[in-house]
Nucleic acid binder design. Structure first.
Lengths: 230, 230
DNA sequence: AATCATTATTTTGTATACAATTTGGCACGG
DNA sequence: CCGTGCCAAATTGTATACAAAATAATGATT
């Protein structure tokens, strides 16, 4: 007696089966990984055979990435991977500070108890990775922590906007090698705002997150300066 | 002795000649004007002959609008104009408040003298249009004022994000008829934050703008409630 | 008569072919 | 020797044709 006709195979019934959607994901990853460095031209046919798809879905993907700001479309002149402009990154961080503050405040108000404890565990992991000098793992955990905070804000619009900026910032970071001294500072700041979080002090937590973001901005932009385009 | 080889015919040498780009603009306008109401299906071929273009550029346009959140793509099931979800609008306003505050603070710091006076003139116009009961003209001026403030912030990332949200909010507004009582209130709030602006009190101006945004949010969302989908 | 299965139609997704524009090179003239 | 104009190759923009999937319509079976 099966009451259901269809079996729920997975929690998310949305299957992204279309090629153009896969192409977006693939290209985005390639751009983030630096496989497609900023400023480089994106020849359609070459990428087509590389991805094993036709031009149609690839072009659709390029339009989407353009609207995300990861590529620039120059009519009749081909697409290029969007260059990383320090001024643009600075502007993004200026907005990001405000978003971090908002995320922090809302997360404090809307987060579930289980999420707070999860955040605590993640923070412990972060500190451990810092002490162990595991740079790559640290950065990943760091991103996950901030993503978790944003998720706890329970605001899809904030999450989407934050994600878009985070992507661009991530790309800038991967270009500019991070200052070593900033690492310790950053961990300290995490310690501080986590204390505010444990007190459930929403305003203070938000303010500290914004401050953390601002300091990160300074470090990233500074590290970006020597990369002057040749 | 002309030192320049090319004559600058216009300030923006970028010409948007491609069909898919025109299609994006056209469709976006149609969605905003309510010509394509929320939830309605978007049959590709029908729109193609209506716009006089082929399916290829139209589909590219749909992907862009999807990435902007104005249409929803359901794989193999066609695209629909994104429904206006009160919860989504509420979430957007929550972010918008923060953006308004940021815009106000930055505008106060980075605005040029000429721009401040221009804003004053626009405000006078706004008040006049309110007194004259010119509803449509008032709303236009209102939008222009806020756009001007955002422009004065000198932050392209903020401007783009703000613009995207403003588009969605505008669509929600056009659906829900605005409460009459709110109109007077709104003008009063404009009066108040303009005073702060004339004092060049950046923090206060930002705070008042955020407050204005929050109150607008309440009014819009309330006006949106009776529109329960049948 | 109602339900299910199967088929037909419509619509979307993808690939390919054609048109238009840009860019690099080359010859010609100054 | 340099600049200008024209031509050719390559690449993008658009249109159309074909394939796949979903919806509907129909008929058979109970």
């Amino acid at each position: 007696m099966d009451a259901l006709k269809t079996v729920k195979t997975t929690a998310r019934p949305i299957r992204r089966a279309t090629l153009h959607h896969s192409a977006v994901a693939e290209l985005r990853a390639m751009i983030l990984d630096g496989e497609l460095p900023p400023g480089v031209r994106v020849p359609e046919v070459q990428l087509c055979e590389q991805l094993g798809i036709s031009r149609t879905p690839l072009r659709e993907a390029l339009r989407v990435l353009s609207s995300e700001g990861l590529v620039e479309l120059r009519p009749h002149r081909g697409a290029i991977v969007a260059p990383v402009d320090p001024n643009e990154i600075a502007a993004i961080f200026e907005v990001m500070d405000a978003l971090e503050r908002l995320a922090g405040t809302l997360a404090c108000k809307n987060g579930l108890e289980a999420e707070f404890t999860k955040l605590d565990r993640m923070h412990d992991q972060l500190v451990a990775q810092h002490e162990a000098g595991e740079r790559a793992a640290y950065f990943l955990t760091n991103r996950q922590i901030h993503a978790q905070i944003v998720a706890m804000a329970r605001n899809p619009a904030l999450e989407a906007t934050y994600g878009g900026f985070a992507t661009k910032i991530l790309r800038a970071r991967s270009l500019a090698n991070y200052d070593a001294g900033r690492w310790q500072e950053s961990v300290d700041e995490h310690e501080v705002f986590m204390k505010a979080l444990r007190r459930r002090d929403a305003e203070e937590f938000g303010a500290l997150l914004a401050d953390h973001s601002r300091r990160t901005a300074v470090a990233v932009i500074q590290a970006l300066q020597p990369v002057r385009a040749p």
